[in-house]
Each structure stands twice: as C-alpha cells, then as structure tokens.
Write a protein that binds this DNA or RNA. Structure first.
Lengths: 206, 206
DNA sequence: CGTTTTTTGTGTGCATTTTCACAGAAAAAA
DNA sequence: TTTTTTCTGTGAAAATGCACACAAAAAACG
C-alpha cells in the first residue's frame, strides 16, 4: 500500500467535516452526501470527496455517507479515539475562561494541569483544577504524560514559556499569545489570535 | 493602473507581517529585510517580497525595509488608520474575558457595545461596558455604526443571533461558536475554535 | 573611485490545490 | 425486470500558489 503524505491543508479541513457531521448526528440525520455536507460548511462537494478519498472509501454510490460511520472514521484518522490530556499555562482571564469551557471534555480533551507563575494564583482552584507553580511544569508534565499545551500567557514571556514546555516534553502548542513562537520544527504550533483575524476582515470593509 | 484582486491568502498573511513588524518597532529596530522578517515568522523571504509587491514597492535594494514605514503602509492597506467599533455578543466566560482584553484597544479596535439575552446579566457592567439586552441590537448597532461583531454565544443559538446581527447591519463576524455559520456571501466570517485546532494537531501526534 | 556585498522586485517555471466530468455502483422508479 | 436517478471515487485539466534565480539599485568597503 502506498501511503503518500496527506497535505496539511487537507488534514486541516477534516475537523470541520467532523464538526458538521457530529452536528448532523445529534440532529438524528443518518445519511448525508458530499453535496449536503459541502453546503453546510461552504466547501465544494468535489473537494470533500477528494479529501476523504485520501484516507479510504467511506461512501456508497447512490446513497452517500453514513453519518455515524464517517464520524467514527474521521475520529480514528484524527486520533480522537482516546482522551488527550492538556496543560493550560497562564491563568489570566482567558486561561480561566478556557478552564471552565465544557467543549474540551465534550470532545475528548481533558485539562489535566493548570499553571501560573503568580504566587497569588498558585494553589487556587478553578473548575476543579488546582493552579500549580509553573516552575513545576518540567516535573509534572512528563509525569502525567501530557503532550499538548494551551499557552495563555502574556506575549512578553510566551517564547520562553513555550521553550520550557518543549523542554518538559510538550509536542503541540495551541498558542493564544499574540506573537510568533520560534520552536523546533517537530513541535506543532497553532495560533489563535483575534487581532489577526479582525485585521484580515477589515481589509474587506470600508 | 491594473488593480487585479489580491488573493485572500495573501491578505491573510499581512496581519502576521504587521504583528512581527510592530514587535520590531517596539524593540527599536529601524530596518529589516525580507529574510529577517521571514525568519521571525517562519515564512520564506521570497514569499514576503511577492506578497508586498502586490501593493507597491516598500523596500530599498541593499537596505531592506524601514520598519516604521512598512508598519504604516500595512496599516493603511488593512484599513487600520481609524478606530473600528466592535459589538460583543454573548457575555459568558469568554465574552467577559474578551471584554477585559487590552489587546483590542491597543490595535485600534474598541468594544463599543456588549449584548446578552440573560436578564441576570443585562445592566451589569464589565470592563466599563454596560451589558445590553440583545433584543436591542437591531436598534443600537446601526445607531453606533458598528460593522464588526464578535460572537460568543452558545452554538445552539449562534446561527439565529448571527442572522440578527446581519439584519442589524453587521458586515463581518468573528465567530467563537463551534458551528459553521450560513450567511450571505458578502458577510465576512472568521472562525476561532480551539477544538478544531486541537484536532488538527492530534493528527500529527501519537 | 571602483569593487564587493546586500537586498529588492519580478519573470519564469514548478508544485500544489481545486475543479471538472464521467464511469460505475447502488437505489429508486417505472 | 428494466430504466432512470443518485451519488461516489478518481483521472485529467485548470487554476492557484510558491520558490528560484537574477538584473538592478543601493550601500559598504578598500
């Protein structure tokens, strides 16, 4: 079997397919087509079929896709069949909001450890988590086997904290700090920055 | 002058260039090159030059780019020379965190109105904003001339609230709800969903 | 002052991504 | 049963995006 590498741009669309399919599943929809799915998320039917064909044949001609089956398959492709532990680093307003967000648990992500460097915050509880001293990251993260971190610290310290996380064994970082992190290539970084998104949109407005 | 449309993917990179350049500016760096800028944000130098060349000639051979000048030019291109008013809709944990975030004001975005439909929340103050009844959106948003909204309501009501926003004259939505919004083509929507980003990353982990 | 170095802007071609369009399979209709 | 309709998976074509490489301009150097 030839397993050529799937383009990252394709991988990036899979979670959107999954999101829409899970929504259909909750609505009780049993079957869908590339056409219908495409209309739901604003992607062409051909694109969806091509993307999925990278991983196998999940549909049936004349019928389309079983929603439940395709959800299952996408979850397997995206490695969502086990629970992923997350470290939450930086317990300001945003860190607190994320700690309380139910969506993570609902999708198989569990915030297992929360860190901050502020002595005022260390020891406090947020959403069932005790905030720990960020100097303990190097010890605690490997102990719990955490591979993914969400970084919600001020931009001024984001780079150095990110390096500490990598040093502690973190392999993927969801970066909320408004700065480009410079890390080894094997570390996967995704950025969430509302300013960047707003500035993208203002280009098209008057 | 031929003004062919600039690809959206190029527009999407400009805010990242601007972010890095503003950082350099704060650091007191007067001049940079496409090479240096590229290394800072992980984009090839040729790519940056090609992107910028879509809008004009901002550099000088042998020297590179004046940081201050390029910041100015990018701000002008992205229409960031005036203050943009924002509506914040949905005052849960995330809405509250965004209301308190200083980054918007620092980049010329001003949250001018905050809405919720919960009688418990209406009338309360958050970060200097009085939370208003979301039934008033249709009246208040046009009155204040607000064009951009940040949507932080539960997924179950996001679509209908988004439609109300469009009806009230909103032209761009930064959508934090974990659902694809279905809106007229002329409305610009950007999504921020940590689950989607995490699922993208887990593909690459074991 | 001439030579070397730096660095831009861009033409060209390669690579990637998307769309098109159709054979074939399944289901629905007749 | 036969015909028509639906809808996938996929080669091929089209479109888009990116990297290379270089002339030309400016600066630095000696």
């Amino acid at each position: 079997m030839i397993t050529r590498t799937v383009p990252d741009i394709v991988v990036g669309r899979l979670p959107r397919y999954l999101q829409a399919l899970e929504h259909m599943h909750r609505e009780g929809i049993k079957t869908t087509s590339s056409q219908e799915l495409g209309e739901a998320i604003g992607i062409s039917a051909a694109q969806i079929r091509k993307d999925l064909s990278q991983f196998g044949e999940f549909g049936k001609q004349g019928t389309g896709y079983s929603v439940a089956y395709l959800v299952e398959q996408l979850q397997a492709i995206l490695k969502l069949t086990t629970i992923w532990d997350l470290a939450l680093v930086g317990m300001g307003d945003l860190g607190n909001a994320l700690a309380r967000y139910q969506g993570f648990a609902e999708h198989g992500f569990r915030i297992t450890a929360a860190f901050d460097n502020d002595p005022e915050k260390i020891g406090k509880e947020v959403a069932g988590l005790i905030i720990q001293d960020s100097r303990e990251m190097k010890r605690i993260i490997p102990q719990l086997g955490i591979k993914i971190a969400m970084l919600t610290v001020p931009a001024s310290v984001a780079q150095s904290v990110a390096e500490e996380l990598v040093d502690a064994g973190i392999r993927a970082i969801l970066n909320y700090a408004p700065i480009s992190l410079n890390l080894p290539n094997e570390i996967h970084v995704e950025n969430i920055d509302p300013i960047i998104k707003l500035q993208h949109m203002t280009y098209y407005l008057d």
